[in-house]
């Protein structure tokens, strides 16, 4: 069993189609919606955790791409500008998953992209604006 976190962008034309339920049924996956939004441009955005055999996950992603969904791996989405980050720590109580956590020895803020669910809460909270979110 593997787990994969992905960001899906649905064009307007796909918003009313059951792309995800078809994909998880056909490829025998289970899923967890981490975030879902419809942007002002009427594009659908969903952050999804998929669980299943790695081959099936890959095939499901490929199938969704064929339907016109843009798919990106999640960890690329929240980015820290390490030049800009001062390691002040203002983000650490805001981050809901401890992806941003204070290292009690070095006093640096460690950013663990694997734990990040791309909620984006850290972006406006970061005083020097070191965090950004890219979909």
């Amino acid at each position: 069993m593997s787990e994969s976190r992905i960001v899906l962008h649905f064009p307007k034309t796909l918003l009313d189609r059951p792309v995800i339920s078809k994909a998880v049924q056909h490829y025998n996956l289970s899923f967890n919606i981490l975030r879902a939004d419809i942007t002002q441009e009427q594009e659908g955005l969903m952050v999804l955790g998929l669980e299943g055999e790695q081959d099936d996950i890959d095939a499901a992603v490929e199938w969704m791409r064929e339907q016109g969904v843009r798919v990106q791996p999640l960890e690329k989405d929240v980015v820290r500008d390490d030049e800009r980050c001062t390691h002040c720590g203002a983000c650490v109580v805001i981050c809901p998953t401890d992806a941003l956590a204070m290292d009690l020895q070095t006093r640096e803020v460690a950013f663990d992209a694997a734990q990040c669910v791309a909620c984006g809460l850290c972006v406006p909270v970061c005083p020097p604006r070191a965090m950004s979110i890219h979909f």
């Binding site: 001062t86 390691h87 002040c88 720590g89 983000c91 109580v93 805001i94 006093r107 640096e108 005083p127």
Partner: peptide
Amino acid sequence: PTTPLSSYVR
């Protein structure tokens, strides 16, 4: 939980 605003590393 505590959160600092001043950077101890710096």
